[in-house]
Simulated assay, not measured.
Amino acid sequence: MGPERRGTGDFPWWLVAVSVLGILLFYRTLADALHAQILSTLLRGVQITLFVTLVAFALAAAVGLGVALMALSRSLVLRQVARFYTEVVRGVPMLVLLLYVAFVLAPGMVELRNWVLGLVGVDPIRTRDFSLLWRATIALTIGYSAFIGEVFRAGLLSVDPGQIEAANALGLSPWQRFRLVVFPQAIKTILPPLGNDFSAMIKDSSLVSVLGVLDVTQLGKVTAAGNFRYFETYNVVALIYLTMTITLSLVLRRLEAHLRRKP
Rank of each mutant, 00 (worst) to 15 (best):
I125W: 13
D129R: 05
F51G: 12
G22N: 03
W175Y: 07
V20Q: 06
G118L: 10
V63I: 15
R261S: 14
L24S: 07
S209M: 12
F26R: 01
L15I: 09
L98K: 07
D215Y: 01
R261P: 08
L180D: 11
V101Q: 09
V159D: 10
V251E: 06
S206Y: 02
R126T: 15
I246W: 05
S73R: 00
L207G: 11
A238M: 10
K221H: 09
R128Q: 14
V159I: 05
L65K: 04
L25R: 01
D129Q: 15
D204N: 15
A71V: 00
L119Y: 07
A139T: 10
A82V: 00
L248N: 05
A139W: 03
A60G: 11
V151W: 01
T29M: 11
R90K: 11
L97M: 15
E4S: 11
R28F: 05
S75C: 05
F198R: 04
S73F: 00
F57H: 10
L39C: 08
M109N: 14
I187G: 04
M201Y: 03
H258D: 12
R74N: 13
L97N: 14
N235I: 07
D32V: 12
L207T: 10
R261E: 14
R28L: 08
V181R: 05
I240C: 09
A225R: 08
R253C: 03
L117M: 15
R5W: 02
D197K: 04
S73L: 01
L42Y: 02
T217S: 06
V210G: 09
V182R: 02
A31F: 06
L39M: 11
A167V: 03
A106Q: 06
E87H: 04
Q185S: 11
L43P: 02
V222S: 10
P192N: 05
